[in-house]
Amino acid sequence: MRQYFGRKLLIYALTFFAAVTINWMIPRFMPGDPIQGLVARAQVADPASVDAMNAHYRNLFGLDVPVWEQYMNFWGALLRGDLGLSIWAFPTPVSDLIVRAIPYTLALLIPAILLSWWAGNRFGAFAARRKWLDNTILPVGYILTATPYMWLALLLAWSLAIVAGIFPVSHAYSFSLTPSWSPEFLGSLLAHWVLPFASLFLVMFGGWAIGMRNLIIYELEADYSNYLLALGARGKLVRDYAFRNAVLPQITGLALQLGTIVAGALVTEIVFSYPGIGYLILQAINSQDFFLLQGVFLFIVLGVLIANFIIDAVYTLVDPRTRVRLQGAGA
C-alpha cells in the first residue's frame, strides 16, 4: 500500500513539474507584448518617458533577462510562494486576486457539482426501473446535456432575470451594498448565486442521470444480479448491489469534475459576470497578463492533481478489486 502511494506521489510530482513548465511557456508564446499595453494605458506621448517606463516595467516583471533565467527565477519565486504582480490589475499581487476570486468559484461549483452528482445518480438509478420516467424525463435530460451550455445559461438569464425579473442578471452581489456579514448583503449574494448555480446544476444533472441509468441497466443484467433474483432475493437488495457497482465509474467522473473546480466555470462566470477564477482567466488572456495566467493555471494543476489523488485513495476503499491488486491476490 505504501509503495503504491509512493509511486503515485512520484508520478504526481513529475506531472506537476511538466504542467507548471508548460503553463510558464504558454503565455510567453502568445503574440503581443503585455508591457506595451501597460505603458499605453498611461497615455504618455514623450518617447523618452515611454522608453524609461518600458525599461522600468521590464525590470520590475523580470522580463529583461534571458528566457532561461526568467524560467529559473520563476521556479525560485514559486517555491517562495511568490506568484508575482498582475499586469491587468497592476500593481495587485496575483495571489491576492486569486484569493479574492476563489470563494466565489468554490461557492458556485462545489454545490453544483456535488448536488448534481448526488441527485443525478439517484434519479438515473430510479429512472432505470420506471418505464414511464425512462420515456419522459430522460429525453429531457438528453436535451439538457446536448444543449450548448452557453445557450442554456443565456436562456435562463434572459427568461428568469430580464423578462420575469425574479433574479438579478449579473455580478455576485448588488453594487449598492458593501461586503459585510449583514443579512441584507448575504441575501443579495444568494439571489445573485441562484441563476449561475441553476444553469450549472441542470446541465450536469442531465449528464449524471443518463450515465447512471445506462450503468444501472447494465449492472441489473449482470450475472450476479440474475443469480440473486433466481434465488429469490428481494428486489431492493439487488438494486442496492447494482447501485453500488454502478456508482464506481461515476466516482471517477466526479473526480475529474472536482479537479477542474478551480478553473471555475469559465462560460458561466462570463455570462453572469460572476467574479470567480474563470472571470480572471478571461481578463488575464485579454490583457496578456503572464503572471495572472500562470498563477491561475498553477491552481488548476494543483486542483486536478489533488482531486485525482483523493479519488485514488477513495477507490481503494470502495472497490475491493483495486485493493486486491495492490496487495496481491490471496489464493
Partner: peptide, 19 residues
C-alpha cells in the same frame, strides 16, 4: 425460490457480487 427450488447457474464464475 432458494428454499424449495434452487439453481446453480452456468455463470458460477461471475455469480457473486464483486464488491
Amino acid at each position: 425460490r432458494y428454499k424449495e427450488v434452487s439453481l446453480i447457474p452456468q455463470y458460477a464464475m461471475s455469480a457473486l457480487n464483486p464488491t
